[in-house]
């Protein structure tokens, strides 16, 4: 298939960017979206031009590196997949596709389609963990955990930290990302000791990093490649309110 691409090009975080139009030819419908970009880049490199920079690594939808806004959709039109898993058969021959970086103030563009998502890491650093030093952990079976609790925790823990939730949200809110981690640990007995401080610090950090406020449009859930539920956001809110309005001394 042949396609026309409008790709955001930006040399670095300080230079303003703009769209450049490219055409790519003879793309196999079995190729992934990133492999289609590889073909474009191969052409560019052969011409001595700088290839389009994009983040990617595992190319099997688990590392969370890739993340491109494709025709206004985070990770493209297909549900439940990351950009690397999106296949070109989702498009039609002759399509014109607009390719943009994930945009949000806390995700500044580094180059072209690469954005800096370390704000997510800083949120995790503010409390997205159980403080256990290596050594001295009790036997793994010492505390039984109900199967449904652990399954629910797992569903939240599958977040790959790609940032599609922020990119898709009209408010640039990181609620789904933060809520997934808060939920994961709040559902497990191991997470109880720091349950209150965790949600408070993580929400404070999220706000401080400059993410927007959630207005419950649920676009995050629709675009999440791991289909993490917004019920996690409800749980995060509950955890936050519980602490601030009830348990706080």
């Amino acid at each position: 298939m042949n396609l026309t691409l409008e790709v955001w090009r930006q040399e670095n975080s300080t230079t303003p960017g703009g769209f450049v139009t490219y055409t790519v030819r003879d793309i196999s419908p079995d190729a992934s979206f990133l492999e289609m970009l590889d073909v474009l880049n191969d052409d560019l490199v052969r011409k001595g031009e700088e290839p389009v920079a994009f983040d990617h690594d595992c190319r099997e939808g688990i590392c969370g590196s890739c993340g491109i806004m494709i025709d206004g959709r985070a990770h493209g039109p297909q549900k439940g997949v990351a950009t690397c898993e999106l296949r070109m058969r989702c498009f039609n021959d002759g399509d014109r596709i607009v390719v943009e970086p994930f945009r949000a103030k806390p995700f500044p563009v580094i180059r072209d389609l690469i954005v800096d998502r370390t704000s997510f890491d800083r949120i995790i650093q503010s409390g997205g963990f159980v403080s256990v030093k290596t050594g001295g952990a009790p036997d793994a079976n010492a505390i039984p955990i109900a199967k449904n609790a652990v399954d629910e925790a797992f569903d939240a823990a599958t977040c790959i930290g790609c940032g599609a939730c922020v990119a898709a949200c009209k408010n640039g809110s990181a609620s789904l990302f933060v809520a997934a981690k808060v939920s994961h640990l709040a559902l497990l007995p191991q997470g109880q000791a720091e349950r209150d401080t965790r949600v408070v610090s993580m929400v404070a950090k999220m706000d401080l990093e400059g993410f927007g406020s959630c207005s419950n449009t649920y676009a995050c859930e629709a675009e999440c490649p791991k289909e993490i539920s917004v019920s996690n956001i409800a749980r995060m809110n509950r955890e936050y309110l519980r602490f601030n309005l009830i348990t706080q001394k």
């Binding site: 806004m69 206004g72 959709r73 039109p77 943009e100 945009r103 103030k105 640039g172």
Partner: peptide
């Protein structure tokens, strides 16, 4: 303010009501 540079294409109702 969270998105100073707007998207060229927006998803519209594909992802939210």
């Amino acid at each position: 303010r969270v998105r100073p540079e707007q998207y060229k294409v927006n998803a519209g109702s594909d992802t939210s009501s």
